[in-house]
Design a protein around this nucleic acid. Structure first.
Length: 802
RNA sequence: GCCGCUGUGGUGAAAUUGGCAGACACAAGGGACUUAAAAUCCCUCGGUAGCAAUACCGUGCCGGUCCGAGUCCGGCCAGCGGCACCA
């Protein structure tokens, strides 16, 4: 019998689908288990070898859970709205829906050829009106609860996509997707109030099992800081409020800075002696993109506002006010008190403009550089704060300001509200109309889904309007509230909308009454294990936690967090160690690998390639080792003996391997799980034969990793009833995981000098005695005095001698 | 600058609480089988010296703790990822 992957893999894939063994049940006595991978964007390039790394890993978990008696939900779908499809459609004059359909068909065929145990009966597609009906429904709930609002504001505009981007989508000043320049543009946009959930998005990380690096990155992104707001009176007779994390340094404030966009500047305009200069600076700042602003970050610029000054509330000193673009309008109050002695940026600015630097925390040389250490300094030149530590001073001044009514404790976040409008065609229409009389009005839920109309051109427009704006028939409608003339919103939702709740739809994918039934939600939520890419940490993962928390608040979902456990896979790199890409010419096509080596080999190799959480380069040589392993397993069939049970000399190895493989799967250590199975297989092969019972255990153990070949062997060798994937995960006996005798190392002064075979439960005294009896050891210690003797059970003896 | 991570053979990598560094593979070299090649099987495979037994060195660098450090502590260096004028 020769191993022929082509014939057998297709056969079992068909069989699984036919029998529906991987279909989850919503009414089961078994405990539930919900395993989830990030559903793919069906791109025109087809599946990438990176996709199966994640899918196989959780497939192994899903298959193991089924063997352990769980009712497993392991679903799949398509995150199909988005720009690449739309751009392809424009270029080739086809409808995006057609492109999507074709791409999905290809992806589906590719995924099925890998033997992933997805429940295809629950397949979903975010561009299906029956799906996006509920995306729109959730948006309406957000709107009704005041969490979706329209706002005129400066937004990130991608010059190539001709579309607005969320802050999370701008990377180093360029568009995350296309790499083109992002500029500021003032537009009226739909926004989602994710900031309202900032604190809970941090706090509730305590409830979930995520890698620390994921938690850290989210916390970092949300950027919580604590400090105080302080009111400064101005000579113009109004109040300038600033935010600071260092209220303790208030006595050291020698000037103020407001951002070029600060509203008070308009109020002061008439009294400014150098208004022209100020106007010129504002215009300059407005022209710059964020990227340009940060590019010249080192060199501080600014203009003093002549004719207005602020008064330091604690010492009554009059101090000048500047405008500078190093102060951002979008953070805090858009204004700061500058303490050059204790803030690096203020120090640089003060140097450049020749402003006084007053030391208020002792510990550094503030004429040389800003002293920013909060841990060691002692307050000086600070009136009521003198002699206190920074921490004590913070507390005291905050209380003082509150008493006088000129300041208050304040928490700020870097997180901005989510810019939710996109001026493109291929997205969910926003179900809102604008009525002159009633303002923005929600579409009645009965009118959902609001379908995307057929348009002649999907071309994005240069004036920043969505292609939908040209669809006069569609745009002009009546107000659901007053019945008068109204216009539909023509922007669409971002790509992240559909993926923010898709895992809920899997629980009850065909429900026509709700996004998912209450019973289904109660049974399946939360997702037990969610694996995905690090690149989604501050995008999809954060967005979907936000939506889920909102749904929890309105009683629509039963738990506080959507994902109980999150893990992240490393990237598969090209053979040359670089990121795989068409332009680098190092892309590996999974179809070719499956064709040449088979899905089982491909799966094993992707799991064996290295640490699951780290990036790993593809190796076309390395995959051969996994193919050999599959063949060596296959060839066990040639040496099946009539003996019963597990042979005595292999018993320990079997128990150890069962234990190790089981534990390694739970800990994402697929590489060592496979190594352990390889070692056991080598041991069996070396013995010259295999018993049916041994083959049976090995087959079930290997089944989650290599599902096709194990089914074939299960059937051919008649190892039992049913399919291999329906058996019971093998059990091990802790007591039988230990070898009867072990080789221990004998050290003298920490250096290995001999090895010794001893019984595993040998007593300390006996082990040491045996060690000393060794010729080599005896010679070495004969003329020395023994200081200490150490015995580590099963490991080593160390004799310390002088 | 801040946060997080990583550094081990020719290569991918292993190594419970500190306890025999390099498991499992790949590549390479040698051998068997073959008319030959492929495939398969067997042997060698961190470095230096040696015919060998063996000895010494070896987990980015320097130092420390300890009977014993890849692992713990302190200080560096290099690389990766995220954030970045966030007051």
């Amino acid at each position: 019998m020769k191993y022929d992957h082509k014939q057998m893999e297709k056969k079992w894939q068909d069989k699984w689908e036919e029998t529906g063994v991987f279909h989850a049940s919503n009414t089961s006595e078994k405990p539930k288990y919900y395993a989830l991978i990030e559903f793919p964007y069906p791109s025109g390039q087809g599946l990438h070898v990176g996709h199966p790394r994640s899918y196989t890993a959780l497939d192994i978990v899903a298959r193991k859970r089924r063997l352990q008696g769980y009712n497993v939900l392991y679903p799949i779908g398509w995150d199909a709205f988005g720009l690449p499809t739309e751009n392809f459609a424009i270029k080739n004059h086809v409808h995006p829906a057609e492109v999507t359909k074709k791409n999905i068909a290809r992806f589906k065929q590719q995924l099925q050829s890998l033997g992933i145990s997805f429940d295809w009966s629950r397949e979903i597609n975010t561009t299906d009106p029956e799906y996006y009906k509920w995306t729109q429904w959730i948006f309406l709930q957000l709107f009704k609860h005041g969490l979706a609002y329209k706002k005129e504001m400066a937004v990130n505009w991608c010059t190539s996509c001709k579309c607005v981007l969320a802050n999370e989508e701008v990377v180093n000043g360029v568009c995350e997707r296309c790499g083109h320049e992002v500029v500021r543009k003032v537009k009226s946009q739909w926004m989602l109030k994710i900031t309202e959930y900032a604190q809970r998005l941090i706090d509730d990380l305590d409830l979930v099992d995520y890698p620390d690096r994921v938690k850290a990155q989210q916390i970092n992104w949300i950027g919580r800081s604590t400090g105080a707001e302080v009111d400064f009176k101005t000579t113009a007779g109004d109040t300038l409020t600033v935010y600071t994390t260092r209220p303790d340094t208030l006595y050291g404030a020698t000037y103020m800075v407001v951002s070029p966009e600060h509203p008070l500047i308009e109020k002061w305009a008439d009294s400014l002696g150098n208004l022209d200069e100020v106007r010129a600076y504002q215009a300059e700042a407005a022209k710059k993109s964020d990227f340009e602003r940060t590019e010249v970050a080192k060199d501080k610029t600014g203009v003093r506002l002549n004719g207005v000054a602020a008064v330091n509330p604690v010492n009554g000193r009059e101090i000048p006010i500047f405008i500078s673009d190093y102060v951002l309008v979008s953070y805090g109050t858009g204004a700061i008190m500058a303490v050059p002695a204790h803030d690096t940026r203020d120090w640089e600015f003060a140097q450049k403009f020749g402003l006084p630097i007053i030391e208020v925390v002792k510990g550094g040389d503030v004429q040389k550089e800003a002293f920013t250490d909060c841990a060691t300094g002692i307050m000086v030149n600070s009136g009521i704060l003198d002699g206190l530590s920074v921490e004590e001073a913070k507390k005291k001044i905050t209380e003082y300001l509150a008493e006088k009514g000129i300041g208050r404790p304040k928490v700020n976040f870097k997180l901005r509200d989510w810019v939710f409008s996109r001026q493109r065609y291929w997205g969910e229409p926003i179900p809102i109309v604008y009525c002159e009389k009633c303002g923005y009005v929600a579409l009645p839920e009965s009118e959902l889904p609001l379908r995307l109309p057929q348009v002649k051109s999907y071309e994005p427009t240069d004036n920043g309007e969505s292609p939908l704006a040209h669809m006069t028939d569609w745009v002009e409608t009546t107000c659901p509230h007053c019945g008068g003339k109204a216009r539909r919103e023509t922007d669409t939702m971002p790509q992240w909308a559909g993926s923010s709740w898709y895992f809920l739809r899997y629980m009850d994918p065909h429900n026509g009454e709700a996004f998912a039934g209450k019973e289904a939600l109660k049974y399946w939520a939360p997702v037990d294990w969610y694996n995905g890419g690090m690149e989604h940490t501050t995008l999809h993962l954060l967005y979907s936690r936000f939506w889920y928390k909102f749904l929890y608040d309105i009683g629509a979902v039963p738990t506080r967090e959507p994902y109980a456990k999150r893990t992240s896979h490393g990237m598969i790199l090209g053979e040359n160690g670089e990121k795989m890409s068409k332009s680098r010419g190092n892309v590996v096509n999974p179809d070719e690998i499956v064709d040449e080596y088979g899905a089982d080999t491909m799966r094993l190799y992707e799991m064996f390639i290295g640490d699951f959480e780290k990036a790993a380069p593809w190796s076309s040589a390395g995959i051969k080792g996994c193919r050999r392993f599959v063949e060596r397993y296959w060839n066990l069939q040639n040496i099946v003996s009539t003996e019963k049970g597990v042979r005595k000399n292999l018993e320990t190895s079997f128990h150890k391997t069962i234990k190790k493989v089981g534990e390694d799967i739970e800990n994402l250590k697929y590489n060592t799980a496979i190594a352990a199975m390889m070692a056991l297989l080598n041991e069996i092969s070396d013995s010259g034969s295999v018993t049916k019972d041994e083959l049976k255990i090995f087959t079930v153990l290997l089944n989650p990793f290599a599902p096709h070949v194990t089914e074939e062997v299960w059937e051919a060798q008649k190892l039992g009833g049913g399919l291999a994937c329906q058996q019971e995960w093998p059990a091990y006996d802790e007591a039988k995981c230990k070898d009867a005798s072990v080789e221990i190392a004998v050290q003298v002064n920490g250096k290995v000098r001999a090895r010794l075979n001893v019984s595993a439960d040998i007593a300390k005294e006996d082990a040491i005695a045996a060690a000393k009896a060794e010729n080599k050891i005896a010679g070495e210690i004969s003329d020395k005095k023994i200081v200490k003797e150490i015995y580590v059970p099963g490991k080593l003896v160390n004799i310390v001698a002088k």
